[in-house]
Write a protein that binds this DNA or RNA. Structure first.
Length: 602
DNA sequence: TAGCCTATCT
DNA sequence: GAGATAGGCT
């Protein structure tokens, strides 16, 4: 201690022969540690408790007598190694602690190795490296890694793809397997998905169809999950989003998605809550007109939900403030599809369009994924979409504005005209969905004149998951052209007081009549809106009900009374983050069946 | 055990 | 936040 305190000599390593009965060495260790001197403790006893105490007191490593003096010839490496590590630590890696642990373990092992053999330097170094690897693995497995998982121990898993887990060294190697989903790769993925079609949209089969060397099922599954949740953006889109958010900080994908997706929580499985599927005997039960056939927990009105389910959870809008811009006249494209064609993909990529007319006939599966795409800044006035679906055609999955990046857009008048004769399925999905729009206003969004005969019309939400969209008014109703028989009605919404909506200050309301011209109000309340909501939703026979939908900020539990044709009543309480009250719903349908639905979140 | 799926982690 | 991974579940 005297030598150390004088500091006249530069000391790198100190070997202490200690007697545990004399605890004075503890001070010496502390002093050595303060001076960055590596201390080797040699003593009579050897057990974990002693070793732990000694190491904790500042010893670099700990040996039991007899002391093998050969180790001295190696000590310089530890001094050097320590200097290197401290250099690295100064660079801010913050991994010094792990290194220390590695050292302790490896030095202990080194001693053992030396006891048993007359190893040369070369072999000794090799042993040391191995030990360090082992030590790192120990650190990882027993420490942060496994603790953070906080899950049960399923043990090491090894599947046919060689996806070994819980191995840090493998993790390093696996970094090479990081798969970025480029647009091309995603296109291949989507092609496979479409090729597989309904009900076969599983990772393994997608992988097989894609048949890309090196691609794993897990990667496909992960990507599939992203796509189902609409959480995947192509690199180009990501870049665009970044660009937008830099230019003008907006409610971007994270916040918007988390609010519009997460807060709705897990949708109940269709079968669990819809006892009477006869409502629409011809409809697709599993509903996967879009290639992702499963239920969806994050996306309230995702494609693939049954129409009944969607009807139960009719439009849920997120209305936020926006900027406006209006201009433009457009092209007049027309698409006619007939006879055994399966068509997908963007119908139209453009900066604006005025009129679009589709005619689809004859065993055609027509699935325009989007009509509007990739407009940076544009507006649409008087947007008309005239669709004729006839003769066994399947029209599905149309998303009028979907997956789209629109900087700023205005659609003043949106008219959807559908004529459907003798059609197998007309499944209209969201008009606007999953759209990244900087700012969009639709002043008059209406779907009109859905003339239907002998077809199955599966009305789906006109808008879901829109971001930053204002809807001034929206009409949509269905008329039976021939039989005067009304099919499942879709919504009829009027947002009459848009000023309130824009400012998110006041109550919003909507009138949604159905086939018999009954009206109801539905008010959807979201995070930012501070006012009250109320909804009266009558159904075919003139019953009325209130639906109150409440979200994060509401402090009182919502409630709803929803009678139906037979004057049945039920309450629906939808509760979110704060879980302030129980939720329950009894939702009878045309045949008077009843069921309970409880929809709960967080 | 393989594989799907969701939640969680890196 | 994209992609990987854990673990429940069938």
């Amino acid at each position: 201690m005297s030598m150390l305190s004088k500091g006249k000599q530069k000391i790198d390593v100190m070997i202490l022969n200690v007697h545990l009965s004399n605890s004075s060495f503890v001070d010496l260790l502390a002093q050595a540690e303060a001076l960055n001197i590596i201390s080797l403790v040699v003593c009579d006893e050897s057990n974990e408790v002693v070793a732990k105490k000694t190491l904790n007191d500042g010893a670099y490593f700990y040996l039991k007598k007899p002391f093998d003096k050969k180790i001295v010839s190696y000590l310089w490496q530890f001094v050097l190694g320590e200097k290197v590590r401290k250099e690295k630590a100064r660079e801010g890696s913050g991994k010094h602690k792990d290194h220390m642990k590695v050292k302790m373990i490896s030095t202990n092992n080194i001693v053992g190795e030396n006891k048993e053999s007359e190893e040369k330097n070369v072999s000794y170094s090799k042993a040391q490296n191995n030990n360090i690897h082992e030590a790192r693995k120990d650190v990882a497995l027993s420490g942060k890694y496994t603790l953070q998982r906080k899950r049960g121990t399923k043990g090491m898993k090894q599947n046919s793809e060689g996806e070994r887990q819980n191995n840090v060294i493998d993790k390093v190697v696996r970094r090479k397997d990081y798969r970025e989903w480029t647009e091309d790769l995603h296109a291949t993925f989507m092609q496979a998905v479409r090729q597989l079609g309904e009900g076969r949209c599983y990772p393994k089969e997608i992988l097989q169809v894609m048949s890309l060397p090196g691609l794993t099922r897990m990667q496909v599954a992960s990507h599939l999950q992203k796509c189902r949740r609409n959480n995947w953006r192509s690199p180009k889109e990501r870049k665009y989003i970044r660009h937008l958010s830099i230019q003008r900080p907006i409610v971007t994908s994270h916040e918007t998605r988390s609010s519009s997706f997460q807060k709705f929580g897990v949708m109940p499985y269709p079968q669990a809550n819809v006892p009477n599927q006869q409502r629409n005997p011809n409809q697709i039960q599993r509903g996967p007109e879009f290639p992702f056939p499963t239920h969806n927990t994050n996306n309230i009105f995702t494609q693939g939900e049954s129409s009944i389910q969607r009807q139960l959870y009719r439009p849920q809008f997120q209305v936020q403030h926006h900027n406006l811009s209006i201009d433009n006249s457009f092209l007049s494209p027309q698409t006619n599809v007939s006879g055994g064609i399966q068509q997908h993909g963007p119908l139209f990529e453009m900066l604006g369009l005025q009129r679009l007319q589709d005619s689809i006939t004859g065993n055609t599966n027509f699935r325009p994924d989007m009509l509007l795409n990739n407009g940076a800044n544009h507006s649409e006035k008087n947007y008309n979409f005239n669709l004729n679906v006839a003769q066994g055609a399947t029209y599905s999955g149309s998303r009028i504005v979907s997956g789209t990046y629109i900087g700023n857009a205005i659609i003043n008048n949106y008219n959807l005209n559908v004529t459907a004769d003798n059609v197998t399925t007309y499944s209209s999905s969201a008009m606007m969905s999953d759209t990244y729009v900087g700012n969009v206003t639709i002043n008059d969004l209406r779907g009109t004149n859905v003339n239907a005969s002998s077809q199955q019309y599966v009305g789906e939400p006109i808008m879901y998951g829109p971001r930053n969209i204002d809807v001034a008014s929206y009409d949509n109703y269905v008329e039976g052209s021939n039989s005067n028989e009304k099919e499942n009605c879709d919504a009829h919404l009027n947002f009459n007081n848009m000023d309130n909506l824009f400012q998110n200050l006041g109550p919003s309301s909507a009138n949604l009549p159905n086939e018999q011209g009954i009206e109801f109000d539905q008010v959807y309340f979201d995070d930012q809106i501070l006012g009250l909501l109320s909804a009266n939703l009558p159904n075919e026979l003139g019953s009325e009900f209130d639906q109150v939908y409440s979200d994060n900020q509401n402090l009182e539990p919502p409630s709803a009374n929803l009678p139906n044709e037979q004057d049945n009543e039920f309450d629906q309480v939808y509760s979110d983050d704060q879980n302030l009250g129980p939720s329950s719903a009894n939702l009878p349908n045309e045949q008077g069946n009843e069921f309970d639905q409880v929809y709960s979140d967080d």
